[in-house]
């Protein structure tokens, strides 16, 4: 069983739990992967539109879908480009779920965690990211319902801050300090844990209170 996502000694490679990391890595998500590695997972990178045949043949017990990396684009975007952007994210996400979970049939506890960024709450001037993150949220919640009979759980962790974009942001007195990347990894590890077998379809914001009420559930 994987350990807590803290600084714990790495386990032997053969006892580590394979973790498919799906999406384009960033410094932030790379740090999450490193933290999860210390917690007993063996991350295997993959692209959303290019899942390795080996993973399809033998799906890993843990899957972490990384948030797509998107430019900030407002509502003036040509509709054709908007649709292309959504197709590029939502279509392969659905096919990934089909190939790694649905076609596998009766399952014994795959854990899927979908990481989203705060664009899911609908920030201003961010049409494409809001739609993409919202779409992934709808997929994740639907997968949770459809895959529950397969004993597969699907949960969402919302990254409620962007330390790279605003490293010097002052602490707001009515909120907790800015959470760091390890706090996000800890939430991911919680949902991946085999003991979280009856938790599915949930959305957890790791935000220090900054997204409170920002995402109606």
């Amino acid at each position: 069983m994987p350990a807590r996502a803290d600084d714990v000694p790495a386990t032997a490679e053969q006892s580590r739990t394979p973790l498919l990391l799906v999406g384009t890595p960033t410094d932030f998500t790379t740090t999450i992967a490193a933290t999860l590695s210390k917690a007993g997972y063996a991350p295997v990178p993959a692209q959303l539109d290019d899942i390795p045949a080996s993973a399809i043949a033998a799906p890993p017990p843990a899957i972490l879908v990384l948030p797509p990396v998107l430019d900030r684009v407002d509502a003036r975007i040509p509709v054709e480009d908007f649709i292309d952007a959504l197709d590029a994210i939502l279509v392969p996400a659905g096919l990934m779920a089909r190939d790694l979970v649905a076609r596998r049939g009766a399952d014994q506890g795959t854990r899927i965690v979908v990481l989203l960024d705060s664009a899911v709450t609908g920030p201003a001037h961010n049409t494409v990211a809001a739609a993409a993150m919202g779409g992934l949220l709808g997929l994740a919640r639907s997968w949770a319902l459809e895959f529950a009979p397969l004993l597969v759980t699907v949960n969402v962790v919302v990254i409620g801050f962007d330390p790279a974009a605003d490293p010097g942001a002052p602490r707001l007195p009515h909120m907790l300090p800015q959470p760091d990347v390890k706090a996000v990894a800890h939430a991911v590890a919680f949902f991946l844990d085999p003991r979280a077998a009856s938790i599915t379809g949930q959305v957890l914001s790791v935000c220090g209170g900054r997204l409170a009420s920002g995402l109606p559930l």
């Binding site: 939502l90 664009a119 809001a130 919202g134 779409g135 709808g138 997929l139």
Partner: peptide, 10 residues
Amino acid sequence: SATKSALASL
């Protein structure tokens, strides 16, 4: 569901 959740975010 994905499209309707996306529309809610939009």
